[in-house]
């Protein structure tokens, strides 16, 4: 489903250029559950950003279902992004919209009918345990709650691929495990899941493929991996 071929990403600007990814290649098949782990700054978020095209590779190719993302026309980019549900590391919630509206937004942009929105949004909000906060604005809820809104928005349109950048970063261990179980369940139903995380306990409990990054390079890729750096 996703293939990186000799991908290099250099961020220009700042005091000096940063080589965030250096000759990274891997293949993720449909219905896989893959965790990217590594120290802060290792390049985890960069890999995810290249997939949903927030960033472009400096060299190399990023293929989505065999198609090079660099070849997607600007007007088709929204369609590409709608295939993916993304949980951003910094949540990226719309501040002027309520929790309900934020989750509904993912369906609205894809043109889902209102009846579908009225049905699915409360369901997913219920699943992440925020029913009583549905009418609150993002600045009125806690960090962990924001994270769960971001997860609900990523799941609600049932995308073929879920990308989750530190989805448990602000959660206590029990809530964190709840979210991971949710992701595992969705994966079981056929959705590909790509996770970036620091959380050792989480990774060791998932018992799925783990790709370890260090300074922009892949140093380990194990199909029942453990967190080992």
């Amino acid at each position: 489903m996703i293939e990186f071929k000799n991908v290099k990403k250099i961020y220009t600007g700042g005091i000096m250029n940063t080589i965030a990814l250096d000759d990274v290649s891997f293949l993720i098949e449909e219905k896989e559950f893959v965790s990217f782990v590594g120290h802060s700054g290792a390049g985890k978020s960069t890999i995810l950003k290249l997939i949903y095209a927030e960033e472009k590779p400096t060299s190399g190719e990023v293929l989505f279902n065999g198609e090079d993302i660099a070849n997607i026309k600007p007007k088709d980019m929204p369609l590409h992004r709608r295939r993916i549900g993304t949980v951003f590391q910094d949540f990226k919630l719309l501040q002027k919209k309520t929790v309900f509206e934020n989750v509904a937004f993912a369906l609205e942009v894809s043109g889902y009918p209102n009846s579908e929105i009225q049905k699915s949004v409360p369901q997913i909000i219920e699943i992440v345990g925020l029913s009583n906060k549905a009418e609150n604005y993002p600045h009125e809820i806690s960090g962990g709650e924001k994270q769960r809104v971001a997860i609900a928005r990523a799941l609600v349109h049932r995308p073929a691929l879920i990308i989750a950048d530190e989805p448990t970063g602000n959660l206590d261990p029990i809530s964190a495990w709840g979210i991971i179980q949710l992701l595992l369940k969705i994966n079981k139903l056929g959705t590909t899941v790509i996770l970036a995380t620091h959380d050792k306990e989480v990774v060791n409990n998932i018992k799925r493929r783990v790709i370890t990054l260090d300074q922009g390079r892949i140093i380990r890729d194990h199909s029942k991996g453990r967190y080992a750096i």
């Binding site: 949903y52 990226k92 609205e108 928005r153």
Partner: peptide, 16 residues
């Protein structure tokens, strides 16, 4: 500005 950025990343078209 950030809102527009977010909308784009969530897959909103330019018209939207």
């Amino acid at each position: 500005g950030t809102e527009i950025e977010i909308m784009r990343l969530v897959g909103a078209s330019n018209n939207f």
